[in-house]
Each structure stands twice: as C-alpha cells, then as structure tokens.
Amino acid sequence: MSSSLDSGFGHSPGWKRLLLTGTLLASCTCSASSELPSSASLNFLTEGAVAHLPVPSNIDGVLAASWFRGHEAQPEAMIFSPEGLPGPGHTGRETLDTQGSLVISNVTAQDSGSYTAVLETSRGRRSKTEQIRVNASSDLVLLLTFPSHIQGVIQSDLNYSVIMTCLSAISLKPILYWTFNGKPCETGEYLIIRKLSWKDLGTYACVAKNSQGEYSSDPVTILLPQVNVDPTKAEPIMPDAVLPVSGGSAIALIVSGMAGVVILTGGMGFTILQSQRRRIQI
C-alpha cells in the first residue's frame, strides 16, 4: 500500500474520489460492520516517540484497512483510505506498514486520542479503536546523565555504565517513572544501567506524575560511538615544469637556437683551421 503524500490532493479529482470513498465507508459502517473490542491498555508515549497501532492479528482474510482520527469513521478525519491514499486527517507523519498497521512518527501531545481502523475482510467489514496518550515535554522535569549527553544523545561503548537522574520542580510531590522507546520500564529517581548491552540502546525519558497531570523530560537516546575514519589523502603529484611558449616568442626562441648552433659550428671550424695552419708552419 502506498503511503506517499500528494501535496495537491486537496484540489484534485483523486481527492474527490477519496472523499466519496470515505463518505460511503462511514455511512455504511454502522449497519454493515461489527466493532471489535478495543485494547484494554492505553498506550502511553512521550513526545518524539513512535506510535504503532496494529491491525488485529486474530482476524483472517483482511483485504484492506483504512484509518480515521477519533472513535468514529468520519470522512473529514480519514488518515488513510482503503487504497492506502492519505486523507484530510493525514499530517505527513503517518505511514502504513506491510500489514496495514498505522505508524505515527515523532508524536506530540496533540496526537493523543482515539484512532479507528476499518477493516475490509472476506467476512465483511470490521472496526477497531485504539487509544494513545502522549506526555508533553516540560521544563519542570530535567534529565541528567552520566556520561553527559550532547543534544539528547549519549555515546557509550558496550559493558560501560550509564546513570540517569530525574529532577522534578513540580510543587506536589510526583511519582517518577521511566520510559524506554515510549513504554514504561522503571520507577524511581535514578535509572542505572550497569553494563550497557545491545538491548539497552534506545530512547529514554523521565515522567513525573501527580494529581494534576503527567510531565515528561526531553528524551535522551543511547547509541554506540561512531567511528570516524579520515579518508587517505593522496600525495600531490607535481607536474613537470614546462614553459609554455607560442607565437612570436616561439619564433624568437627557434631563431636564437639556430643562431647559437651556427656560432658554435663556426667556432669549432675556426679552431680546426687554426690548428691546421700551425701544423703547416711547423
């Protein structure tokens, strides 16, 4: 299924067909579809994480999947049509995987809420609603790390220790917990990784929760160091010193060379003649 976004779809005939498809789909959803049970658990994410809303794996014969923002399949809230085309609810951060599941990258607090999938199956139309909640980043929660992070990135070799500390300036004492790649993993003020392994590489954030709400720190990502190899610089090859000569300079140089040859030949001849005269006199 294609997930590319056409920047001009809002005024094209294809957009009209898409809206018509959504209208027909929404109008017959109530009478011809059965709603599957929603997920019991709410997906808690932190800003900047990736949300993955899967198509139910226990349904056989899924022919197509369309996604909508909200608890109902409204045409104006369509994110993807059954043909995999983006709709008016598409923000440019949504894609479909090979199974038809919805993937939202770089989520923000505004992405919190319900998402409805309408599935075309061999046994009819089914629908399912998923919910996500994105905790907004806040200056009230600060994440300190050792080694220090640079622009939200820690570079560390495997088997080394990484220590993260969560500081909160919230007035009412909150409960602190940690998320790893958007999912809760630990609780407490400190998160200590004693020996870094491959499974520990990823994005972490600290969340402070009290009766007034939840506040998240800026995320920090742990990566392996990048090896920078400077390219081998080739030694410069000095060209042979050649004096370019053309035109009148070339003619003058040739004449001078010929004159030099004549003078040299004349001198040698004069020397030989003088030698012979001396022999005759003797």
Rank of each mutant, 00 (worst) to 15 (best):
E235N: 07
A65R: 10
A109E: 13
V261K: 02
C166Q: 05
G84V: 05
P225Q: 01
Y177R: 06
G257T: 05
N159Q: 08
K195E: 15
P231L: 02
E120F: 11
Y190I: 00
E189I: 04
G152Q: 01
S171F: 03
Y215E: 15
V220I: 10
R69W: 08
F44W: 14
T29E: 15
D200R: 03
L143F: 14
V62N: 09
D200I: 04
D111F: 14
N106L: 05
G257R: 05
Q281D: 11
G152F: 00
G22P: 13
V103G: 07
Y190E: 09
M164V: 00
L36Q: 14
P75Y: 10
I280R: 02
E189S: 06
V50D: 05
G188P: 14
G89I: 04
A26Q: 11
G87T: 08
I251K: 13
T108E: 11
T95Q: 08
G89K: 01
Q110V: 07
E83L: 06
S216W: 07
T271P: 01
G269M: 10
S112H: 10
S138P: 06
T23H: 12
L223H: 09
C206D: 09
A65K: 09
V229F: 01
I163Y: 13
A234V: 00
V162I: 15
S122F: 04
P82C: 02
E189P: 03
E83Q: 12
F270T: 04
S249E: 15
I79H: 13
E130I: 00
E35I: 00
E189N: 06
A259L: 14
L19M: 02
I282V: 08
L24E: 12
V55T: 13
T129P: 15
T145D: 14
I132H: 11
R126H: 00
